[in-house]
């Protein structure tokens, strides 16, 4: 009877201990997670207002007029160019999902670095993509290196 009691107490102590470690771990993560969630939700609003008409609700694109945003490899290998595409538009052919797209993409000059960062985070973490965070500082840096 006594042994059983101790065992039970031990179990409580251990579970409390493990629980508090888990909570500490969770708290550490959440600062970043909250930031990410903020980027995702603002990015979604921007996407719906500015991108969705051509690229579609599910990033499916529009025929051969607008490429889909589901080509994770393209997005990953062109990650540092995405900010330039959005800010300055695109006027050269690009190959996405194995298809060539030649239509112009308009420039979104009025978007600030933070807007661009948010919309990139949204796109690269939706439509089957999962590429994590991308900050406005990175956008500022990438924009410096755009080909004029």
């Amino acid at each position: 009877m006594k042994g059983k009691n101790i065992g039970f107490r031990k179990a409580i102590v251990y579970s409390l201990f493990i629980g508090s470690i888990a909570m500490a771990f969770h708290a550490c993560q959440s600062a970043g997670e909250i930031e990410m969630a903020k980027y995702m939700s603002n990015g979604k609003d921007l996407y719906q207002a500015r991108c969705q008409n051509c690229h579609g609700k599910d990033g499916e694109g529009l025929g051969e007029l607008a490429p889909p945003l589901t080509d994770t490899i393209f997005l990953k290998s062109n990650k540092t160019k995405l900010a330039c595409f959005i800010k300055n538009g695109v006027n050269e052919p690009m190959q996405v999902n194995g298809k060539i797209y030649q239509e112009k993409m308009p420039a979104f000059k009025d978007l600030h670095d933070i807007d661009i960062a948010q919309v990139i985070v949204y796109i690269t973490n939706t439509f089957g993509n999962k590429q994590g965070m991308y900050t406005y500082e990175q956008v500022a840096n990438d924009l410096k290196n755009c080909r004029k």
Partner: peptide, 15 residues
């Protein structure tokens, strides 16, 4: 054809 605002969505829907 060069309309980048409402035309793509109109034609997506019309399609």
């Amino acid at each position: 054809t060069s309309c980048s605002t409402i035309c793509p969505i109109m034609h997506r829907n019309m399609k």
